[in-house]
Design a protein around this nucleic acid. Structure first.
Lengths: 132, 132
DNA sequence: CGCTCAAGTCTCTATCTGAGACTTAGTCTA
DNA sequence: TAGACTAAGTCTCAGATAGAGACTTGAGCG
C-alpha cells in the first residue's frame, strides 16, 4: 500500500475521533508547531545549543517577540530546554531535548522532499500566474 | 551521522543563502503550507478526491473562508487539482496532483512521529503546568 | 410557497503579528 | 568619567489575519 493511501486511512481514523484538538495528535501538534517559526528554530538548534541572541541572528527576520514566544511554546511542549545562567547580564542557552532531537528524523524527510520538489512547485506557481 | 546533526548542517546551508524566502525551499514551503489547515486538507484528500462540501464536513471546524483560501493556495502551488463541473449548482471536486501525492510519504513520517510521541508531549506540558 | 443545497463571497469583529522603544547592570570606549 | 554597547527579554501600538455568519443563484422537494 502506498503512503498516500495509508495517509488517507490515518485521516479517516482521526475523523472517527471527531478530529478533536485535544485528542488527535496531529491536530494538536500542528496547532503547536505548525507555524512559520517553530520548524525553523528546531532546525537551528539541531546543530547544537545556541543562545537567544545567536538564534536571533540565525533567523534574521524573526522578531524578538516571536522568538521568545515560539521558544516558550517549544519549551512547554518539551522540544526545547532553556538553561538560564543567573549572571548579569543573564546568559540563556537553548538546546533540543531528546524529544526534540527525535523529531529531527521525520523533519529531515520533509526537508529533503522540499528541496527535491522545490522546482516543481515553482513551476506550478509560474503556470498558475500565467493562467491568471 | 544522525538525523539531528544532518538537519543542523542543512540549516547552516540555508543560512549561507541568507534564509531568503524566495530561494530557501524550506522557508518557502513553510510559508505556504506551514499553517493549521494545509496539512490537514492534504491528509483529507490523500484518501481520494472530495468535493468542497465533503471537505468542509471532513474538517468540521474550518470556516468556509479558510477552506477556500487554503485550497486556492494548495492549487497554485501544485499540490491540489480543482475540477469544476459547470452544472447548476456547480459541482467542484478537489484531488491531489502527483506532486501532492508524493508529499504523502514525508508527511506520513511526521504523522507517525506525532502519534508515537504524543504521550511524551502531553507529559511535558503537564509538567510545565505544574511548575508554573 | 418556502426550504435546502452547491460553492463560494462579503463584511465585521477578534486575535495575532511585527516594529521598535525600554529595562538592568556590567564592561568597553573616548 | 561619561557615553555606548550587550544580554534577554517585556511593553505598546498599528497593521495583518482568522473566524463567524449573512448573502448569492437556480433547481429540486414537500
Amino acid at each position: 500500500m502506498d503512503a498516500c493511501t495509508r495517509l488517507g486511512e490515518k485521516f479517516e481514523g482521526w475523523q472517527a475521533l471527531g478530529l478533536d484538538e485535544e485528542r488527535c495528535p496531529v491536530r494538536n501538534l500542528l496547532d503547536q508547531i505548525g507555524d512559520r517559526w517553530s520548524i525553523l528554530l528546531i532546525s537551528a538548534l539541531a546543530g547544537g545549543p545556541k543562545r537567544f541572541s545567536a538564534l536571533a541572528r540565525a533567523v534574521p527576520d524573526i522578531s524578538k517577540r516571536m522568538l521568545t514566544q515560539t521558544l516558550r511554546t517549544l519549551e512547554i511542549s518539551g522540544f526545547v530546554h532553556r538553561d538560564v545562567q543567573p549572571t548579569v547580564p543573564p546568559s540563556v542557552t537553548y538546546s533540543l531535548t531528546p524529544l526534540g532531537q527525535s523529531f529531527a528524523a521525520p523533519l529531515l524527510g520533509l526537508v529533503d522532499w522540499a528541496e527535491s520538489n522545490f522546482a516543481t512547485v515553482l513551476e506550478a506557481r509560474a503556470q498558475a500566474k500565467r493562467a491568471a
